[in-house]
Design a protein around this nucleic acid. Structure first.
Lengths: 151, 151
DNA sequence: GCTGAAAGAGGTGATAG
DNA sequence: CTATCACCTCTTTCAGC
């Protein structure tokens, strides 16, 4: 992981389809050297995957919301994590410091989708309380990678 | 945007390096047809970019934090947005409903980086108050795309 | 809008330096 | 690491349905 590796990762982040020769020209290496570095970066997990950044709205998931979750004192936290990990609406789920236990970001097609999401988790007794903030507009957003079996 | 387009976007989300023939086999189309659809999806913006999901920790940005921001009553919101849009530490910045104005997710290399981030914005009078939650562990996280000129 | 074939570009893996 | 080569898979294009 030297400076050139970092440059290569940024190049691919901008456009993962650039040719090895093109990247090599930018970072000052031959195509063989760039090829070998990308192979190493991928094998070592610095590059997790090649993917696409999709337009969530075009895929019918135009509404983003942040849900703060409080678990019950006797909650089955492992169960909560397992359900969250596979839930199609969840874009992000982090265990966080502060008064809430988890911060979840979801993407849904309508406001009704937010209610359905909350109902789902509450009915399964996975969360005790929650607070929701709806995203009104975006200044910066990470890539959106659609996941299978999205409701 | 039919069901096949959606399948193609998901295939590419899983692995953007899969060959057209391979994807075609999965969705039931020829390579030419898949190629044409990807071209249209990219041209129309459904696919924003081909990118990589990187390991933030390997890039020295192992700490994630969420910062809730309140602007001053007389704040220059356009200036805040402009600075946020180009700030290297900011991974996400959304205007949200509720008692706070913006929800920001940052990635930094150390806890000192969080303090530096807050100091930067407060010294420039871009934010009036804030509250920070540090991510302790991750259940689900969107792709991380490193941006240039990261401090 | 799709298929199938043909042409071309580019990734891959070897070599020697 | 560079430079070059041969190989070969994959992309791209185009005629035809």
């Amino acid at each position: 992981m030297d400076e050139i590796d970092r440059q290569i990762v940024m190049c691919l982040g901008d456009d993962a389809r650039r040719s090895l020769a093109d990247i090599g020209g930018e970072v000052g290496l031959s195509t063989s050297a760039v090829n070998e570095r990308i192979r190493r970066l991928t094998a070592s997990g610095v590059i997790r995957r090649f993917t696409v950044d999709a337009d969530a709205e075009a895929l019918g998931l135009g509404i983003a919301a942040f849900v703060f979750v409080g678990l019950a004192a006797d909650a089955d936290e492992a169960a909560f994590r397992a359900v969250a990990a596979d839930h199609p609406a969840i874009v992000e789920c982090q265990h966080v410091t502060g008064g809430w236990n988890y911060l979840i970001k979801i993407r849904v097609g309508s406001l009704a989708g937010i209610e359905a999401f909350l109902d789902d988790f509450k009915r399964r007794r996975l969360i005790a309380r929650s607070e929701t903030m709806i995203a009104l507009s975006t200044v910066v957003e990470p890539p959106f990678r659609p996941r299978r079996e999205r409701s």
